[in-house]
Amino acid sequence: MGLFAFLKKKFSGKKEEKTEKYEKAMAKSRAAFADKLEALSKRYSSVNEEYFEELEQILIEADVGVSLTIKLVEDLLNKSDEENIKEPEKINELLIDEMFVSYVEGGASIINEIKFVDEGPTVLLVEGVNGVGKTTSIAKLAHRYIKQGKKVMLVAGDTFRAGASEQLTIWANRLNCPIVVGKPGGDPAAVCFDGARYAKQNNIDLMIVDTAGRLQNKANLMAELAKMRRVIEKEIPGAPHETFLIIDATTGQNGVEQAKAFKEVSNLTGIVITKMDGTSKGGIILSIRDELGVPVRFIGLGEKMDDLEEFDLDQYLHGLLLGESNG
């Protein structure tokens, strides 16, 4: 079954209840991708070299990787020649099948919500490069699970950046949840140790650990993450149970490098894409899944506590590819 057919079947007659914000953000992705594809197919009665060039532009401008784009377009060109397919709509359908069918196949098994352990605190470690929105995402995640009735605590593992602990403390106060803070410039592993102790003693359900932003090419800072993991593991066997990498939606080709490097030092269990409320393209989502197989679990859509949504791949593809009118 082709992807279009699959998605149409899956979502037929189903009116999704999504927040207005989610719809708005997704509408932007559509404008960036689905609408462009559709507009393109309407301008040509039959495909030619220029058509493929424009197709390439749409893909690259959505931050889909360059090599992947070139490969996709070349394959399409060949197929178009061999099988004499000249209708623009057909070509677009082929492209979409090629690009996304593997995602849909794997999409069903993804559980977005954090998996809680049966006994003791569940630990979530949050990592990422500088300025992607780790602390804000932590606040949103904490808010989500407090609402679900969990006992949540925060650990201010970023002892390096000026104002980082204060930032997380303000969120903790707003959320009315406990927080463990270290000394400025102190060893983040020591804060993790204190945090883990506190979590065990106070029957915490979810302990979320913030870490300092680090560029993935800084070997010593990446090693520091490994040390933090070890210290947590010692106190709470099996922890951290979840490790989320935060990636900024406006990131270009480097996003994949980030995911690769962090995956190497940490057992990444999920990715959170932030700032999707911008003129988001989110092509990065596909590139990362393509190369690493780490699922996107949540997306950030703003600066408020509620601005976090589960990421539903099928839904995303549906919106991305079919637009509202076809849904």
Partner: peptide, 12 residues
């Protein structure tokens, strides 16, 4: 401007 910025940087 972040060195990691993608295609959208020009719009910004």
């Amino acid at each position: 401007v972040d060195a990691m910025a993608g295609q959208d940087a020009v719009n910004v």
